[in-house]
Design a protein around this nucleic acid. Structure first.
Length: 852
DNA sequence: TGCCCGCCCGTTTTT
DNA sequence: CGGGCGGGCA
């Protein structure tokens, strides 16, 4: 399609035909699409001409404005769908926008070819003009994994000590340069010298060289090469400038410098001969600093939507300055603020707004809540992270009970636990497994990044693209076929000498007598396989081909024979991969898709509490949000403070703001006073962000467990606490303080001490694997309120209270997502004790198990 | 070639 | 404290 579209006359404007029935139908819908907007939103939608910056606070209808704006442009006939460039960061956001625009404008208009992620659009442009940047149009897109391996090769070739100069360090450096739009000769001298005694720049050059040989581009190149293309070929740039009558950018606060430069080039339409001179190398500073003098500017219909208070990706190259500098970059820009929050209740909005007001570098917005005040933001102190997980688990169960009593229910999907760092998740997973609370972890290792998937893909890549050396190298000896380092070295040597791909080198070596018979035979077999598979590819569906490849290569068998815990899961993943291939027309299409789309997307049904990082939560919303771990050093994170100083603190604060504003009805903050850091128990200080919350909108409570166990505190620790407590005089807080006094609860104090001591001894083994003792649950009181009862007893009580009988029997073979395969060795209600092959003995709830 | 031991490190992550 | 990786040894 690229060729055909290429020739479509570019500047035909609205066509008369569009004014017919379809347009009238659209008009009718138009009456509704504008009606529901508030005045600010409406202004953001209707201000079509000139640069516009929409500062959209959390929950103020950002996506709605973007999509309505597109609908509006189309409805007025100001542009056709193919003349609107709309960029997002993630595939998810792009998909959502496509869906919503589709809904608004109905089937009357064809889809929008230029609504996509920065990278997807970059690829689209590059494939059309690949020759001009030294690539072929079927170039491969490398991911981080490939990159690292490529860099390792380069370092080896340069005889650099991998210990002193690790590949990933260089990869990070490289990424940073590319994020900033720097070509090898533009890298600042100091930075170029900083790696491998001044070899940084040369390595960058060699790396780019190698990419061209491999006919490959990395993620950074998808934008950088576009920029280079635009600068070196003003005629091509002009084509695109004229085509895109309107440009829309989502999440502008997250753009990095390369994306900024890319946008800026496209958003300077019909600029007079700005051309090669001004546009070639070395003027990064100039372009960014002053506003480039580019002659008569006719229209820059660019609309950027973002929120400087939600910029949380500085560490990966996003430059908040881009949004702060907007007016300067696009003179005459309109700035429209969306400040009415439709998502959260009053106290939550007030708390978030007050917190973020402590930041200095911001454009300034005042969020207002639409709805009533709702519940105050709760702040709860816990003894340690285990206590924190227990408290939150019980809170969730209590909420469900309460809802049930009211005949309502609080769906688990509407609950999220947002952590700063992923290691915090484990505690919740463990606890929820124990009490049988369904949860799902969002984030984690991504589907397409798993080793088995990448191995399978490598086979397919070699079939589709015989010159893909990285892919070939990856599977050369996977599964093991006796082609180790020695063989690879020979291959590399031949390939380099003859300037041919590894696969071709393999063919030569397989035919010649240079190699020892064994590896030679293996090599020949492999090459034959690839020849056969490629031939087959033309005849059978690609999903079927993949299946055959995995079988014949011995790859499936390799995992079938593997006895480790996750082998079953890996085989499952491979099946899933083949299933997902069926949705694509051909192998190339599929490979392109997976190169750019990495979100496995958690749409998996089923009622479950969501556990994820704060970063992963951006853009999402939930009725109830739990925010654990608000301790200085963890949140704000120490490393952020150390490395980025005040800027780092402000970004952490924005993260806190993002966290709070995810909540519709309930936001609950927790902190622990003790946490294990790098294996050591450390006492912690409550997050400074707590003191930045407005007291009137906050309620300080004690944990439901009552497990805070103040009596177990040393005096000094409590003194640290008072810095926090002094701000509050709520009953809950006073109660907690009161408990500090002697004898308030001798028994529990003793219990807490014992337990603390016990934890000190074996903090890691978490009371899970002592199934024998589950029986004596003879204590009174509600199981959930059981004060400091040993968790096992608590677990048993819950199991009994659910009244279910397990469908599993002792001796059965079962599979668990996290622990792998194992044998049931005890059954107790719906709780089973399973001896896992790898993970050892665990107590798990039966619903997490499958029969094998 | 494969396994094991020891060392090092330990925040966030999309494309 | 525990996981991952790399080097060294069998």
């Amino acid at each position: 399609m690229s060729e055909a579209e290429h020739r479509v006359p570019i500047d035909t404007g609205p066509q008369p035909a569009a004014e017919g029935i379809a347009a009238r139908a659209l008009r009718l819908r138009g009456a509704t699409y504008l009606a529901g907007l508030n005045p600010d939103q409406r202004c953001a939608v209707e201000t079509l001409d000139g640069p516009v910056l929409v500062l959209a606070g959390a929950g103020t209808g950002k996506t709605r404005v973007l999509t309505t704006r597109i609908a509006h442009i189309l409805n007025l006939g100001r542009a056709r769908p193919a003349e609107i460039l709309a960029v997002t960061f993630t595939n998810k956001a792009a998909r959502e926008m496509k869906d919503r625009v589709g809904q608004m404008i109905g089937q009357v208009v064809e889809g929008m070819p230029w609504l996509d992620t920065f990278h997807a659009i970059g690829v689209k442009i590059l494939r059309r003009h690949a020759e001009l940047v030294g690539l072929r149009s079927d170039f491969t897109i490398l991911d981080t994994d490939d990159q690292i391996r490529l860099i390792k090769q380069l370092l080896e070739f340069e005889k650099l000590d991998e210990q002193r100069w690790p590949a990933r360090v260089f990869a990070a450096l490289l990424e940073g340069w590319k994020n900033r739009g720097l070509a090898p000769d533009q890298v600042p001298a100091i930075e170029a010298v900083s790696f491998a005694n001044g070899k940084g720049k040369a390595l960058y050059q060699a790396y780019q060289q190698r990419l061209k040989t491999l006919n490959a581009a990395d993620f950074g190149d998808l934008l950088l090469e576009c920029i280079r293309l635009f600068r070196q070929h003003p005629d091509i740039l002009r084509q695109y400038q004229e085509r895109f009558k309107f440009i829309l950018v989502d999440e502008y606060q997250d753009t990095n410098t390369a994306q900024y430069l890319w946008l800026k080039l496209l958003a300077q339409p019909r600029s007079s001969p700005d051309a090669p001179g001004a546009a070639t190398a070395g003027d990064e500073g100039a372009e960014r600093g002053r506003s480039p003098d580019v002659g008569p500017r006719l229209h820059t219909n660019i609309c950027c939507v973002g929120d400087d208070d939600q910029s949380i990706y500085g560490w990966r190259g996003a430059d908040v300055d881009n949004i702060l500098r907007f007016e300067h970059d696009f003179p005459g820009a309109r700035i429209i603020r969306l400040e009415t929050n439709y998502r959260s209740t009053g106290h939550i909005v007030a708390a978030a707004a007050h917190l973020i007001a402590h930041n200095r570098g911001r454009l300034g917005k005042t969020l207002r809540a639409e709805g009533g005040p709702g519940e105050k933001v709760q702040v709860t102190a816990c003894w340690d992270s285990e206590d924190e997980a227990r408290a939150i688990g019980e809170e969730i169960e209590a909420m469900q009970r309460a809802a049930r009593e009211n005949g309502a229910d609080h769906p688990l999907d509407e609950i999220a636990i947002l952590v700063r760092a992923s290691f915090q998740m484990r505690e919740f997973e463990d606890r929820f497994i124990q009490i049988g609370l369904p949860f799902r972890v969002i984030g984690g290792p991504r589907f397409y990044e798993r080793a088995e998937i990448r191995d399978a893909l490598a086979y397919l890549r070699v079939i589709a693209q015989p010159a893909d050396d990285l892919a070939f190298e990856r599977i050369l000896n996977v599964p093991k076929r006796g082609l180790g380092d020695a063989a690879l070295q020979m291959l590399n040597e031949v390939a380099r000498r003859k300037r041919i791909p590894l696969l071709e080198a393999a063919r030569l070596l397989g035919a010649s007598g240079e190699m020892k018979p064994k590896p030679r035979a293996a090599l020949r077999a492999l090459v034959d396989c690839f020849d056969r598979w490629r031939g087959l590819g033309a005849k059978i569906p690609h999903a079927k081909l993949a299946e055959i490849v995995l079988d014949e290569s011995g790859y499936t068998e390799m995992w079938q024979r593997d006895r480790s815990a996750d082998a079953a899961g890996r085989l499952e993943n491979l099946k899933e991969l083949i299933r997902s291939m069926e949705e694509f027309e051909n192998l190339t299409g599929f490979l392109e898709h997976i190169a750019l789309v990495t979100d496995a997307d958690g749409g998996e049904g089923g009622e479950a509490v969501n556990i994820m990082t704060l970063h992963a939560a951006k853009g999402l919303e939930f009725d109830t949000v739990f925010l654990p771990g608000w301790e200085d050093g963890l949140f704000p994170h120490q490393r952020s403070l150390d490395e980025e100083g005040h800027a780092g603190l402000e970004e952490e604060r924005r993260l806190a703001h993002v966290g709070l504003t995810r909540a519709r009805k309930r936001a609950r903050i927790y902190f622990a006073t003790n946490r294990r850091i790098h294996g050591l128990w450390t006492s912690t200080i409550p997050s400074r962000f707590l003191d930045e919350l407005p007291p009137d909108n906050v309620e300080v409570t004690e944990a439901r467990t009552g497990g805070f166990g103040m009596a177990a505190y040393g005096a000094s620790r409590f003194d640290e606490m008072t810095a926090f407590g002094s701000n509050y005089g709520t009953p809950g807080w006073r109660r907690a303080q009161g408990r500090r006094g002697a004898g308030a609860d001798e028994a529990s104090a003793a219990e807490a001490r014992v337990e603390a001591a016990e934890r000190g001894r074996r903090p890691a083994s978490r009371l899970v694997s002592r199934p024998g003792q589950a029986g004596d649950a003879g204590r009174g009181g509600h199981p959930l309120r059981a004060r400091r009862a040993p968790p096992l007893i608590e677990g048993a009580l819950i199991a009994k209270s659910t009244g279910t009988v397990s469908q599993f029997a002792v001796g059965e073979r079962v599979f668990h997502q996290k622990f792998g395969n194992g044998n049931v060795i005890a059954v107790d209600g719906n709780k089973l004790t399973v001896a896992f092959d790898k993970a050892g003995e665990k107590r798990v709830v039966d619903r997490f198990l499958e029969r094998v």
